[in-house]
């Protein structure tokens, strides 16, 4: 039965996860999904990379959602990430000035994704990071990870990075490229497998 009796806490049990499947492409991704940074903002950072499967093959039917603080470490409560146009029902896109902190980006046919957002500020004891959730065909339950930035202050003291084996810590740190962008690949399985997170 899926009429939940909220007066009976024993019956309030989680709705199970399911794979996003292969046919989300016309439903979930939206115009400008990866353009989180307000236009021309000086603290814009571009992060991009590939999603790979256990054979090292790129995954063309995955998407990531990114959620991060603004450069002062504050979390946005502004809506409008996927503003819509009320007459045709199409996407208007972000307005270019407000920072919502959230975006959704699908991998392309090469398994590549890219986001432009603001370099987040630090909160609490953590080094600055972007929270990430990954969905794909074949993945029965989404995966959480984080994007930290090479060269940021506080990486060595970050409570989560400190929990991770030194040999795997690098999978959580985006590498600064010669062109100023950051590279962050996600390996779902096998050699160099990304560190995934669980929250309890």
């Amino acid at each position: 039965m899926t009429k939940i009796d909220t007066n009976n806490p024993e019956s309030v049990l989680p709705t199970p996860s399911h794979t996003v499947g292969p046919w989300y492409g016309y439903a979930l991704p939206f115009e400008g999904g990866g353009d989180i940074a307000p236009t021309g903002h000086p603290e814009t950072v571009a992060v991009h990379g590939y999603v790979y499967d256990g054979n090292g093959a790129p995954v063309p039917d995955a998407f990531v959602e990114i959620w991060g603080a603004d450069p002062d470490g504050a979390l946005s409560t502004i809506d409008g990430s996927m503003r819509r146009e009320p007459f045709s029902g199409g996407y208007l896109g972000r307005n270019g000035v407000e920072f919502t902190g959230w975006g959704r980006i699908e991998t392309d046919a090469n398994g590549h994704w890219a986001v432009r957002t603001l370099h987040p500020g630090a909160r609490g004891e953590s080094a600055p990071y972007l929270a990430v959730v990954i969905f794909s065909r074949g993945l029965l339950h989404h995966l959480y990870t984080r994007i930290y930035f090479e060269g940021d202050e506080g990486l060595s003291g970050d409570p989560v990075l400190r929990q991770v084996d030194a040999a795997r810590r690098d999978t959580l740190i985006a590498r600064r490229q010669a062109d100023g962008t950051y590279r962050f690949d996600i390996r779902l399985q096998g050699e160099g497998e990304t560190v995934f997170l669980e929250f309890t």
């Binding site: 499967d53 074949g138 029965l140 995966l143 779902l188 560190v195 669980e198 309890t200």
Partner: peptide, 16 residues
């Protein structure tokens, strides 16, 4: 569900 074979991590997650 065959598509899960190469798309699930083998390492346990880090608990937060």
């Amino acid at each position: 569900y065959r598509s899960s074979a190469l798309r699930h991590p083998k390492q346990p997650p880090i608990n937060i």
